[in-house]
Amino acid sequence: MAMTAGDIETMIKAAIPDAQVTIRDLAGDGDHYAAEVVSESFRGKTRVQQHQMVYDALSGNMGDALHALALQTSAPKQDAG
């Protein structure tokens, strides 16, 4: 069974409460999404570590209920002031 964008966002926010999550359905089929996740908890972590945090949040749904997820992660931009 496919996941909705809302399901993905809810799971990410449950595991990473401060995350700002933007989900786009890339193909209109409920199987291919792009996610942008911004969280302070990513600061100081490698991109691989950041992505692993998001995949962990999806509780094993990658490759099953969720076929493809194009993922962008980052820490919030810091003010220059």
Rank of each mutant, 00 (worst) to 15 (best):
L58M: 10
G63F: 00
R47S: 04
D7E: 15
K13M: 12
N61E: 13
A57N: 03
K77F: 10
V21G: 07
Q50W: 06
Q50R: 14
R47K: 07
D18T: 10
G81V: 04
A35M: 05
M3V: 11
Q49F: 04
M53C: 05
A68V: 11
K77L: 09
I12E: 06
A34I: 06
T4W: 09
Q52V: 08
S59C: 10
D25R: 13
K77N: 10
A15E: 15
Q52C: 03
R24C: 01
L58G: 09
Y55D: 06
A34R: 14
L69N: 04
I23C: 05
D7P: 14
M11A: 15
T73I: 03
A2R: 15
A5Y: 03
T10L: 11
I12D: 03
I12C: 08
D31K: 15
D25M: 02
L69S: 04
K13A: 03
T46S: 15
Q78K: 13
M11Q: 15
R24T: 12
T10D: 13
G28V: 04
A15N: 14
D64W: 00
A68W: 10
L69R: 00
A2D: 13
V21R: 12
K77R: 12
Y55Q: 09
A34H: 07
D56Y: 04
M3F: 10
D29A: 04
K13W: 13
A19M: 00
D64P: 01
Q50S: 13
V48N: 11
D64Q: 14
G6F: 08
Y33L: 05
Q72R: 15
Q49I: 05
A65C: 10
R47A: 04
G60N: 01
Y33F: 15
S74L: 04
A15K: 11
M53V: 07
D56T: 00
D79V: 04
K45I: 00
D79T: 12
D64V: 01
A35D: 08
G30F: 09
L26Q: 07
A70Y: 06
D56A: 03
D31T: 13
H51K: 07
M1T: 12
A70S: 15
A68L: 08
P76T: 03
D29E: 14
H32W: 07
G63N: 00
D56M: 00
Q50V: 04
E40P: 06
L71Q: 13
K13E: 13
V38H: 07
R24H: 03
K45T: 02
A15V: 04
E36C: 08
V21D: 02
Q49S: 02
P76W: 09
A70C: 10
V48M: 13
D18G: 03
T4R: 05
A5R: 12
Q50Y: 05
P76E: 03
A80R: 14
H67G: 08
T10C: 05
A68S: 15
A80V: 11
D7T: 13
Q52N: 12
I8W: 10
G81P: 10
R47V: 04
A34C: 06
H32P: 01
P17V: 03
V48D: 05
H51E: 13
G28Y: 08
L71A: 02
Q72I: 02
Q20H: 11
Y55K: 14
I12R: 01
L26T: 08
G30Q: 02
T4K: 07
